[in-house]
Computed example of a mutant assay.
Amino acid sequence: MARRTEWPDDGSDSSRAGKEPSSQDPGEQARAICLRLLTGMPRTRRQLADALRKKGIPDEVAEDVLSRFEDVGLIDDAAFAGAWVESRHRGRGLARRALARELRTKGVDSALIDEAVAQLDPSQEEATARALVDRKLRATRGLERDRRMRRLAGMLARKGYPEGLALRVVRQALEEEGEDVDDLEFGSF
């Protein structure tokens, strides 16, 4: 259960309006900043630390506040990473590599990233790649075979799919559509 912070009644409504309290206590300011940022969406510890640094909160105060937030469960990088992987894979069709890259930019620890992307099994990843190709396939009709292959495989590459998987899925989709892909020479995309 989160500890409730009582703000002194100085006549202003700054604490009720979602703004940092007007007191000069850096601890109170840090708590208010973190709570405001966490209200909109979950954040990683590093994202919050960066925000506190930008607001001029001393590092030792920020560390204390962030540790307390972790202790009470308001900051949980493992849960953040798991939810991120689930959401971005389902919603945008991103593969493990792209998801890991996004989590790294958000400051999630490598071990937590590995755990989070491990929840995607290879068959699930391949099924998602196939669904992406099936949606894009219609838009490439009428283009020459090589161009279709490049567009479809390139789309999967941008979403982080490995080259071998991307080419296999694209070839299967084109074959099922009746394209002759046996003589395709397709290098690295």
Rank of each mutant, 00 (worst) to 15 (best):
T44Y: 10
A83P: 00
S67T: 09
A139T: 10
R97F: 04
D71K: 02
R101D: 12
R171N: 09
E115T: 13
E125S: 11
V61I: 15
G160C: 03
Q24I: 01
M149T: 06
D121N: 15
A2M: 09
H89W: 11
L94C: 06
V181E: 00
Q172N: 08
Y161V: 02
A139M: 07
P122F: 09
C34E: 09
R36P: 01
T140D: 07
M149A: 12
I75Y: 05
E175L: 06
H89T: 12
R43E: 07
S23A: 13
L99F: 11
G73V: 03
S15G: 03
V170S: 01
R141S: 12
G142Q: 02
I33R: 13
V72F: 09
G178L: 01
A173Q: 05
G160V: 04
R168F: 03
C34A: 15
L120P: 07
W7Y: 13
Q172A: 06
D10Y: 04
A83F: 00
R141K: 12
T140M: 11
G187C: 00
E179T: 00
D114M: 11
D71N: 05
L152S: 03
R104Y: 07
Q24G: 04
P8H: 10
E177S: 10
A30D: 07
A116I: 13
R171P: 02
E6N: 10
